[in-house]
Computed example of a mutant assay.
Amino acid sequence: MDVTETVQIIALDENWRLLGRIDGRTGWTGIVRALLSLDSAWLVIEQQRPGEPIPQPRLEDIRLSRAIASRLRPMEMKLADHVILGGQRLFSFRQAGLL
């Protein structure tokens, strides 16, 4: 069975209501275009790691969150959360105080 990690960007409005989901494979330019077309104010990075029963952030995950948060500022968008799903569990950067 192929167990691959996936990344989705969840676009939210100013009240954190779902506007749409963007495939992370789209690349930064495609993600930004989609976020702007949806008039997104907030976003969530959602990583799925099917092979990890207890998801934990890696150093590169923390770097990704920080890089995206800083790139969103000039566009007046904010990072609401970065969640990692693994097995039946979820790790939230916001809940862990990493945002």
Rank of each mutant, 00 (worst) to 15 (best):
V3I: 14
E5P: 03
V7C: 09
Q8G: 03
Q8A: 10
I9T: 03
I9D: 00
I10G: 00
A11D: 03
R17K: 14
R17I: 04
L18T: 06
L18W: 10
L19Q: 07
L19C: 03
G20E: 00
R21G: 05
R21N: 12
I22M: 04
D23E: 02
G24H: 06
T26V: 04
W28M: 11
T29N: 12
G30I: 07
R33K: 15
L35H: 07
L35M: 11
L36G: 14
S37T: 12
L38F: 15
D39C: 05
I45Y: 02
Q47V: 10
Q47L: 14
Q48N: 13
R49C: 08
E52S: 14
P53R: 11
P53Q: 13
Q56C: 09
R58S: 12
R58F: 07
E60M: 09
I62D: 09
R63S: 12
R66V: 08
R66N: 15
R66W: 09
I68E: 08
A69R: 08
S70K: 12
R73D: 12
E76N: 15
M77I: 02
L79Y: 04
L79R: 05
A80V: 05
A80Q: 14
D81Q: 01
H82S: 10
V83C: 09
I84L: 15
G87H: 03
R89W: 07
F91M: 01
F91T: 01
S92W: 01
Q95R: 14
Q95F: 06
L98M: 13
L99E: 08
